[in-house]
Design a protein around this nucleic acid. Structure first.
Lengths: 235, 235
DNA sequence: CGTATTATTGATTCGTGTCAATCGACGTGG
DNA sequence: CCACGTCGATTGACACGAATCAATAATACG
């Protein structure tokens, strides 16, 4: 764990996700309370934010970067159960111990809160519960869309689906599709997410490349050449 | 759609899930409001409660029976993304249209609320948002455990995992495992949920039977003979 | 009792996992 | 600057498991 996580006091006024995150719905006073208990923290790729089994973990809002939520079965295989994008919230409230690992996929900045005080605020301020509920509904929908991905039969369809997930996440405008982006996951992580092997992921990617559906730019970079074809594979 | 759905006024006082459902956290006054807008409805197996694409759908608390939440891709394949057990809540709040179908797996009884008035209550009463948030956290955890199920490599492991899900759902005490139960899903539905085919599900089930891990009692009934073995397959 | 639906079983094909070798990028130290 | 080691990605040969196709059996239902 080479992580050199750095901490800073909160600066809500200049926050990039100020409008979309949970705290957007809060009053000035409530946000003030949050600022008192929270702090900014930077994470490098690979840094753990929460470990499964921890009994007194934290929760956080992601400001920039990307996180993964995963479980490790005892044979060592990692199962990714969710990806977290900026403005997303992580941390299981109201449970004694964490069930999943939360890890940075890229260098990231989070707004970190100790769980207990945070829960107290949720209890005290209706706005917080309400805002978290909306966020939670989004998370649920997103998690179900991952089931949709994994449930697909062929490896082609799964990889195509994930490419679109990345493309949508990388798009500036919500609802749009980025034509060029870097995949935040290694082949191994992609394999873990899709329930495939590294080799199969690699093969499908080169297949797509040969069919001119995408263009590979280094190991991580992808340019989408034939978006309709991808959509068709997924739909 | 042969469904003969029947409606009745709410009878909270004698409700079986009164203590665990969302409404458990409410005051008498708040529950009174709910009773005003809600009604009981009985569903037969196969009845649709919500259809994807509906613009003015309802939400509901399941009192008894079982529901499935699913999507249908346009090639007609059904993808089940969640199972709902008594005290569970269905309905996507704060979204204009429903993304998923909700269907009864067995004869069921639900507490049904029109969405708009329900959302109004959530806005008005902090307790509601808070209670829904807790429920939502449970749903999220359960949905992620389904990902864990589907992501498993072999068909053996997946079927074993689902058997345990059923066994736990059928247990009277939470946390326990029922030794004998009826599977609420057809082979086709199981296949859809696990990303397998009907034939494979059938084969694994007969495998387990031959290995004396389970005993099949008719098409739906299952008696668990070797629970540790099942746990081992999943762990 | 007969028909429709659902489940089982078998034979075969196809796709993905597995094992293994190679390549490429990157960082380190000689 | 180049040799080397490490790590991730790619590619190939092969085996195994699940899908597919097809026939039969069991169950539900009128």
């Amino acid at each position: 764990m080479r992580g050199h996580m750095s901490r800073y006091p909160l600066q809500c006024a200049t926050c990039a996700v100020r409008e979309q995150a949970v705290c957007a719905a809060l009053t000035e006073a409530e946000r003030g309370e949050l600022m008192r208990i929270g702090e900014h923290r930077t994470l490098e790729r690979g840094d753990a934010l929460i470990d499964a089994g921890e009994d007194n973990y934290a929760c956080a809002t992601l400001i920039s970067g990307a996180l993964k939520i995963s479980a490790i079965d005892r044979d060592g295989t990692e199962r990714i159960v969710a990806l977290v994008h900026p403005a997303g919230f992580v941390g299981e409230l109201f449970t004694p111990t964490a069930h999943h690992h939360v890890t940075a996929l890229t260098d990231s900045l989070v707004c970190l809160f100790p769980r207990k005080p945070y829960e107290k605020l949720v209890d005290a301020y209706p706005h917080m519960a309400h805002a978290l509920l909306r966020r939670s509904a989004l998370d649920l929908a997103e998690t179900r869309s991952i089931i949709d991905l994994i449930g697909r039969r062929g490896s082609r369809e799964r990889v195509a689906g994930l490419l679109l997930v990345f493309a949508r996440a990388a798009a500036c405008d919500p609802g749009g599709v980025a034509m060029r982006f870097d995949m935040p996951l290694t082949r191994g992580e992609i394999a873990g997410l899709l329930g495939l092997t590294i080799e199969t992921v690699s093969r499908r990617l080169t297949d797509f490349s040969r069919e001119s559906i995408i263009k590979k730019e280094g190991a991580r970079g992808v340019k989408i050449l034939d978006a309709p074809k991808l959509e068709e594979l997924v739909r």
